[in-house]
Simulated scan of single mutants.
Amino acid sequence: MGGTKLKSLSIGGRLTLIKSVLSSLPLYYMSSFKVPKGVLSKMESIRRNLFNAIYGIRRALDKSSSYARRSPWLDIVNEVRKLASKGIDLLSLVKKKVGNGDVTSFWNNVWLGDFPLKQTYPRLYFLELDKHVNVASKLRANSLISSFRRSPRSGIEEEQLLLLISNTSSVILPIFM
Rank of each mutant, 00 (worst) to 15 (best):
L117Q: 01
V35Y: 00
K118P: 01
G38Q: 11
D62G: 12
L27W: 06
K19E: 11
K34Q: 09
L112I: 10
M30F: 07
L93D: 03
R47W: 05
R59C: 07
D114V: 06
I156E: 12
Y125R: 07
G3D: 08
A136D: 02
F115G: 00
L91T: 12
L17H: 10
D75F: 10
E44A: 15
S105M: 02
D62K: 11
A84V: 00
A141R: 01
S45W: 11
L162D: 11
L9N: 02
V103K: 15
G87P: 03
L127C: 07
S64R: 14
A136Y: 12
G13S: 02
S65N: 14
S147Q: 09
N134L: 01
K37Q: 15
K37R: 08
S41Y: 02
N78S: 14
L15W: 04
G3C: 09
G13H: 06
Y55K: 13
W111E: 02
Q119F: 10
S146H: 06
L139M: 14
G2T: 13
L112P: 03
S8V: 00
L164T: 06
T120F: 00
R58C: 05
L25D: 08
P152Q: 05
A60V: 11
T104Q: 02
D114K: 12
N78K: 11
I46V: 15
S20P: 01
V133F: 00
Y29R: 04
E128V: 06
K86T: 04
Y121I: 01
S143H: 08
L15I: 14
V171W: 07
S31N: 11
N100I: 05
N108I: 03
R47H: 13
G99P: 08
S65G: 10
L6R: 11
I172P: 00
R69N: 14
L144H: 04
G38T: 13
F148D: 00
D102Y: 03
S32W: 00
E79Q: 13
Y67I: 12
S32I: 02
L112G: 04
S154H: 05
K37V: 15
S92F: 07
R70G: 01
L144M: 03
K97H: 13
N52G: 05
E128I: 07
L6S: 06
